[in-house]
C-alpha cells in the first residue's frame, strides 16, 4: 500500500467528498418533495392523479437511474432543457429516488391503523384535517427509518453522476486510478469517505427516529 501517494492526493478527495455531500443533500430534498407529491397522488381520490402517480413509480423504478440521467443530460437539449452536469445530476437522481420514496411514504401512511381515520372522521374532522392532524403525524414516525434506507441508497447512487463527468468522489477516484495505476489505494480512500458520510447520516437518522418515538 502506497501511503505516500494517499497522503499526497487526499486533499483532492476531500474536495470531491464535499461535492458528493452537496449532491446527496440536494437530491434528498428533491426526492422528499417528489416522494410527498407522488404519495399524495397515489392516495388521492382522483383516478387520474392515482394513475399519474402509479405511472411515475412504475417508469422510474422500472428503468435504470443511469439511463434516466443520460436522457436528461444528453437528450435534454433536444427538447429545450439545457442543464449543466451537476444540475442534471441533482434533478435526475432526485426524481429517481422520489419514486422509491413515494412507495415508502405511501406504505407508512397506509400502515397507520384504519381505526384512527374512522375515529377522526366520526369526531367530525374533514378528510384533509384527518390526514394532516391524525394520520400524517403518526405516519411520519413510521417513515423515518425506511426513508433512511432510501437515503443510504441515494448517497451511494450519487456515484452515477461520475458518468456525466461531475467531479465527485467516484469520478475523482476513477481519474486517479487512471493516472496513478493504484486502484486499491484510490478505492480505499474514496470508500472510506463514502462510509464516513453514510455512517454520519445513519446516526442522524437513528437519532431522529429515537426522538420521534419518545414524543
Amino acid at each position: 500500500m502506497d501511503i505516500d501517494l494517499i497522503l499526497r492526493v487526499y486533499p483532492f478527495f476531500l474536495e470531491a467528498a464535499l461535492v458528493t455531500i452537496q449532491l446527496s443533500v440536494l437530491t434528498t430534498i428533491l426526492g422528499l418533495i417528489c416522494g410527498a407529491l407522488g404519495a399524495a397522488a397515489r392516495l388521492s381520490r382522483s383516478a387520474v392523479l392515482r394513475a399519474i402517480g402509479a405511472t411515475y413509480v412504475s417508469l422510474f423504478r422500472g428503468t435504470p437511474a443511469l439511463i434516466q440521467l443520460f436522457i436528461l443530460y444528453f437528450g435534454g437539449p433536444q427538447i429545450g432543457i439545457q442543464l449543466d452536469a451537476f444540475e442534471a445530476g441533482v434533478i435526475g437522481l432526485g426524481v429517481n429516488i422520489g419514486a422509491y420514496m413515494t412507495e415508502t411514504m405511501r406504505g407508512a401512511i397506509l400502515s397507520v391503523d384504519k381505526g384512527q381515520t374512522e375515529a377522526a372522521r366520526t369526531l367530525g374532522l374533514s378528510r384533509w384535517e384527518t390526514m394532516r392532524k391524525v394520520v400524517l403525524p403518526q405516519a411520519m414516525r413510521l417513515m423515518i427509518r425506511p426513508l433512511g434506507v432510501n437515503i443510504n441508497a441515494l448517497i451511494k447512487g450519487t456515484a452515477l453522476v461520475a458518468a456525466i463527468s461531475v467531479v465527485e468522489l467516484t469520478y475523482t477516484a476513477q481519474r486517479y486510478i487512471g493516472s496513478t495505476y493504484k486502484p486499491f489505494e484510490m478505492f480505499l480512500l474514496s470508500g472510506a469517505l463514502y462510509m464516513l458520510i453514510i455512517y454520519i447520516t445513519g446516526r442522524a437518522i437513528a437519532w431522529l427516529d429515537r426522538r420521534a418515538r419518545i414524543t
Binding site: K156, G157, T158, A159, L160, A162, A163, L169, T170, A173, Q174, I177, P183, F187, S190, G191, Y194, M195
Partner: peptide, 8 residues
C-alpha cells in the same frame, strides 16, 4: 461504497 466504484 457505490457499485460503480467497486466496478472500477
Amino acid at each position: 461504497t457505490p457499485l460503480l466504484l467497486q466496478l472500477f
